[in-house]
Design a protein around this nucleic acid. Structure first.
Length: 575
RNA sequence: CGGGAUGUAGCGCAGCUUGGUAGCGCACUUCGCUUGGGACGAAGGGGUCGCACGUUCGAAUCGUGUCAUCCCGACCA
């Protein structure tokens, strides 16, 4: 391709509305252009990159025995009613009505559709196992789209679904996918970590995410997830799922008798601890949440943080948020109190589910809210002054330097970009949608399902996050839009142009994806653009051509060699 | 959904306080000159100042509303 013909517009400056580096660079280098909030045009260079990623995904999925198909982007509400998700998916599901008033939605994922395909097409265990996948645009009406391609509303995704006769088969399918995913990301030039994760709204039991770890110190860190990992064994998990063994702390408050004391204006644990001159570890914190519209009181040790996903899962919920002040008022009124946040306790509260984190079990002579403003109960003990809730669970966020549950070594945290995930769905959808097959024993059984996603556009953006420098993108070879760019320094120089054209034509003849910068621009412009766009290799034909030498630059490490044109061609052909 | 900010040419911005009919840099067109790290000169083209209503002789500028975009928060009581 000739640069003079290539549809690309590089910008001298970064776009004002971009925050993270992949977004800034992809816009500035002319790969993408925003159409509206969270929705982007993929321009020719970007489309080449996306096709590269797609093809790697295709090859590995096909090699793993999966079969590609394509399902509709618009789906009828009836299927979602069947699975039960029409009412629980929330506002992320883009709903619309057709001209007859029938409710439809834009597909955010395709469990329902694939399940309907399976129940019509698969009758016998002899047809199993099977794994079907597609690569397609998805739409999720995100609360807050951001970070360019990393969290858009419309994005390209590969979603695969496996069907097995039993759990054993699912385990096998799951393993095959995990292996395929490792191959895919490795081929894309991305180092990933497979971490345990919450299974979320999709449902099911076991799930893992593939995270591209990003540098904690990087400015405008694009990693939206916290990943806890063991420094010794292989344990790693998303913060919404991570567990740990905690370090020992002081849990005896040493208050000799239980009494209600004045604690004016101590709205936070820090203020309360400072006022009473005690460590936060002898305070029992009480937080009111709303899970699927129902009130929940969560108790946790004062130095610890509630992990909302874990809390939500205790109640098998779909939605969780902290209660608003007016809701707290409502609860208090219903129980005959008037305390505000900061002074809440479990004792005497009505019509509320109470759950305690494991951290509060061992508290002795501790401090806890008593539903009276500006007062706390000190010297409290479970069973004497306050009842220990029936429901005790791990609802806490793991912290750095907690210990690994598998080996006892220290846990560390890092930021990650989730580029893929794999789920064991089990029979969640097949049962709900009555999707069954006839097994060997002649009985009807629901399919045992798994689902497996890869964000194609996000993977490309993550590659930019990981591979760039101050001058621009450094595409990994496998997903670069072009392999090499030939740059004649001066289009006035006949010899330079002639040699550049020769190199270009020889590479073209060998089916190399090659660009030639034949524009009548000054050298600086052409070289800056080549760096910005991030083509892995550059062959620069300049003055030294009179000695039959060109410059060969490797963008990944910015190494420069001076070699002959034939040597340069040979290097490219040997890649 | 709450809080903050911003909407002026394709991109990045100034002008607004103190109303008088729009400007700068990049990009674009033509000519000249230049060609190893985003040159230079000359001449051009391009904007209902997000939109609506209001105040005024007169609104990019003041007021009200609305839409859009970006950031922060969705949180530890």
């Amino acid at each position: 391709m000739r640069m003079s013909n290539l549809f690309v517009q590089t910008l001298r400056e970064f776009p004002a509305d971009a925050e993270v580096i992949s977004h800034k660079l992809l816009v500035r280098a002319g790969y993408i252009r925003k159409l509206t909030n969270g929705v982007y045009n993929f321009l020719p260079l970007m489309w080449r990159v996306l096709k590269k990623v797609e093809n790697i995904v295709r090859e590995e999925m096909d090699a793993a025995g999966a079969q590609e198909l394509l399902m509709p982007f618009v789906q009828p509400s009836e299927l979602w009613q069947e699975s039960g998700r029409w009412d629980v998916y929330g506002k992320e599901l883009m709903r619309l009505k057709d001209r007859h008033g029938r409710e439809m939605c834009l597909g955010p994922t395709h469990e329902e559709v694939i399940t309907s395909i399976a129940r019509e097409g698969i009758r016998s265990y002899k047809q199993l196992p099977v794994n079907l996948y597609q690569i397609q645009s998805k739409f999720r009406d995100e609360i807050r789209p951001r970070f360019g391609l990393l969290r858009g509303r419309e994005f390209i995704m590969k979603d695969a679904y496996s069907f097995d006769v039993d759990e054993e088969g699912l385990d096998k399918s799951y393993e095959i996918m995990a292996k395929a995913y490792r191959n895919i990301f490795e081929r894309c030039g991305l180092e990933t970590k497979m971490v345990q994760s919450d299974s979320g709204a999709i449902g099911g039991s076991v799930s893992h995410e593939f995270m591209v770890l990003v540098n904690e110190e990087a400015e405008n860190n694009a990693g939206e997830n916290d990943v806890f990992y063991c420094t010794k064994c292989g344990y790693s998990a998303n913060s919404n799922h991570a567990v740990s063994i905690m370090n020992e702390v002081e849990t005896d408050g040493k208050f000799t008798k239980a009494e209600i004391v004045d604690t004016p204006n101590t709205h936070s644990i820090e203020e309360l601890a400072a006022f009473l001159n005690i460590p936060s570890t002898v305070i029992c914190k009480a937080l009111i949440y709303v899970v699927d519209g129902k009130y929940v009181l969560a108790l946790i040790r004062g130095d610890r943080t509630v992990e909302e996903t874990k809390l939500m899962n205790v109640f098998a919920g779909n939605d969780i948020r902290i209660a608003r002040n007016d809701e707290i008022e409502e609860i208090m009124n219903a129980s005959g109190f008037n305390a505000v946040a900061g002074f809440i306790g479990p004792k005497g509260l009505k019509n509320i589910e109470i759950v305690a984190d494991e951290t509060v079990k061992d508290l002795k002579n501790f401090v806890i809210g008593c539903n009276q403003n500006d007062k706390h109960l000190v010297g409290a003990n479970w069973g004497i002054d306050v009842d220990l809730p029936q429901r005790i669970a791990d609802i806490r966020l793991v912290e750095e330097n907690d210990k690994c549950v598998d080996c006892g070594a220290e846990l560390k945290v890092t930021k990650g970009i989730e580029v893929g995930n794999i789920f064991k769905l089990g029979t969640k959808y097949s049962k709900a949608m009555n999707a069954t097959f006839t097994d060997k024993d002649g009985k009807e059984k629901p399919f045992i399902m798994g689902c497996y996603g890869i964000g194609i556009s996000r993977t490309a953006a993550a590659a930019v996050e990981r591979h760039h420098d101050e001058y621009g993108i450094k595409w990994p070879l496998a997903i670069a839009p072009y392999t090499v760019i030939v740059v004649p320094v001066s289009d006035q120089d006949e010899i330079q142009m002639k040699v550049a054209e020769e190199i270009y034509n020889k590479l073209l003849a060998k089916n190399v994806e090659v660009l030639i910068d034949d524009r009548s621009e000054r050298a600086g412009v052409k070289l800056k653009d080549a760096d910005l766009i991030g083509i892995p290799y550059r062959i620069t034909v300049g003055k030294t051509i009179k000695d039959n030498l060109v410059e060969f630059k490797t963008r990944a490490n910015n190494n420069v060699e001076t070699i002959t044109p034939d040597e340069a061609i040979a290097k490219i052909l040997s890649l």
